[in-house]
Structures are given as structure tokens and as C-alpha cells.
């Protein structure tokens, strides 16, 4: 089973990279970009075909390694 984990910075955590991207978009003439937040996309291929098991494994992986929950949120999608 394929899965996709999206890791993003929590609200309230400054994202200087997002700010730099926003600045670059502005300098390219893209008006009206109010905010940019950059995150990470992690694609995984799991041995299991059981969705509940996959969900549980991925949650554990996110909590233990894939995200730093001090500063980041994560979202799990099974594909």
C-alpha cells in the first residue's frame, strides 16, 4: 500500500523559508500572495494491505521520527 505523509509547520511557528518564497513570488510579479508556508512530502510504500494497520503504523512513524511535533503537524493519506 502506498501512503503519503505531509509535514507542515504549526501555526505560530515562523517559517523564514516560506517568507523567502513569498518574497521571490512577489519579485516575479505574482501579486496577492498573502502567505506562503513550506512543508515536506514523504511518500512511503508499506507491505501491509490493511488500512487500519497502515494508519496505525504511519501514526507511530510520524510521532517517533517523521515529524517533530514540537514545531510540526502531520497529515497521513493512504493511496
Amino acid at each position: 500500500m502506498k501512503a503519503r505523509v505531509t509535514v507542515t509547520l504549526k501555526h505560530g511557528v515562523l517559517d523564514p523559508q516560506g517568507k523567502a518564497i513569498q518574497g521571490a513570488l512577489k519579485s516575479l510579479g505574482f501579486a496577492g500572495v498573502d502567505d506562503v508556508r513550506q512543508g515536506k512530502l514523504i511518500e512511503l510504500e508499506l507491505a501491509t494491505a490493511d488500512r487500519a494497520e497502515a494508519q496505525a503504523q504511519l501514526t507511530d512513524m510520524c510521532e517517533k521520527l517523521l515529524a517533530n511535533t514540537v514545531i510540526e503537524n502531520y497529515r497521513i493519506e493512504l493511496i
Binding site: V13, L14, P16, Q17, V70, I71
Partner: peptide, 8 residues
């Protein structure tokens, strides 16, 4: 946590 320097 230690994050990217504000100056990048």
C-alpha cells in the same frame, strides 16, 4: 527545537 536561521 532549533529552526532555520531567520536570515536563511
Amino acid at each position: 527545537a532549533l529552526m532555520r536561521n531567520a536570515s536563511l
